[in-house]
Write a protein that binds this DNA or RNA. Sequence first.
DNA 1: TCGAATTTGTGCGTATGTATC
DNA 2: GGATACATACGCACAAATTCG
Lengths: 253, 253
Amino acid sequence: MREQPTYLRVADELRRRIADHVWAEGAQLPSRAQLAKDFGVSDAIVRRAQELLISDGVLEGRAGSGTYVAERRTRARMVRAHVRTGLDEAAGGPDLGALTGPETWEGRSDVMVPAPAHIAARLGIAEGDYCVRTAYEHLLDSKPVYLSTSWEPYEITSGTLVVLPDGGPLAGAGVVRRMAEVGITVTHAVERMEPGQTDAEEAHLLGVQRGVLCTRIERTFYSDDGRAVETADIVVPAALCEIVVETPVSRRR
Amino acid sequence: MREQPTYLRVADELRRRIADHVWAEGAQLPSRAQLAKDFGVSDAIVRRAQELLISDGVLEGRAGSGTYVAERRTRARMVRAHVRTGLDEAAGGPDLGALTGPETWEGRSDVMVPAPAHIAARLGIAEGDYCVRTAYEHLLDSKPVYLSTSWEPYEITSGTLVVLPDGGPLAGAGVVRRMAEVGITVTHAVERMEPGQTDAEEAHLLGVQRGVLCTRIERTFYSDDGRAVETADIVVPAALCEIVVETPVSRRR
DNA sequence: TCGAATTTGTGCGTATGTATC
DNA sequence: GGATACATACGCACAAATTCG
């Protein structure tokens, strides 16, 4: 077995000290120069080790100030439950498992947005076909916990009162109810989940640092005739929100 | 809006060129020195940009050889579906959604392993209580696609023929069937998913580079009396396996 | 209000080790 | 063995942000 490079050893040591509460939550670490002297390594190595922990959400670097042990905010739980809880729809909230706790959100819609290629493919429409695009910021305790951008074919709801997800009588009621209003029955959702890192814009909206680990979810709702009626890109930073999937085990017969 | 730092601009430009097939899949990029000259930036900046793309699984650096556009292996799909496919159990495979395609795995069990604190907490047993630990390497097409390490309280299966997940008459049959053999009915599983990066050991086992993005899943199976009967840590590198969750939308009545 | 010191964030040049060809 | 290229490591410089006197 090959030995680990220095910057990983330093990263592990920093992790250990934080786990052992050598530095408390929210506390400021010694400066890079000081740590480099302590560890007997160069400035750049400490920097690199800290970058790893920053993207893991363990540390937080503040320019001009210092590097701090990240405050562990009580994380929201985004539950994908396959068992009926009765909660999701009753709350008038999102159609798939709500966050635990009182959730609010802010949305901004644009109508007549031409579908880019990847969205068109997911919705089964032609590139350039018009869509209603809505960007959401989901808040818990009035702090952002995740972002989503949803796309609906304009053709489905054009001319109806529910054309705008965040307007009309069913504002914020979720895709399932709004689609029901125009005679479409939504039967299931498919979500692709993959790990990623936040870019500058996402980080700014979420109040975290650029490059922190997140889960990117591509969610698509389908109606009973197999047509995609909505698709969304969801960005869930690990530090703010945990994703839980509950699956029933089907009985053997 | 502040402008992006150079290394992010370079990373974006590299991404764009790959998306535009300026460099084909599997092709070798120009050397760092050459790219640095082309972009008019330093060697270190190109290195940093490439590191980002390597952890995203877009590029692959081979020491002594060059930097290549990562081959998009046909990715396995790990499906978490509520709808009964009939496949999962019949195949004697994993109890939760199988991979698409012929899956095999190699496992190695250790009995009488004292439970570490975090595992004990998940299983609802005392730290140090004995467990059966099994490390799996899941293969598709005889290439590894994800790793898992499962823990079962030794107390549950000790003295039975199914004490070893990968031994006895039901070797590899999955938790649900094995537990049924000792009179325990497994009713559901709870999975916590979060993004992470592979460490050196995981990367070696999976045949990917250290630091590539992955999803870490903590999965726990529960029996009808609410007791945790097995818990596992699963590492799914994004480049090799995609995770899909299918959720039915419960009908309004 | 201003300015100096500190600290992070970014960028550059170089040296050394090591794997590949 | 030698040339090439990546991986790691070091030292330095400068900008931007913060802190504090």
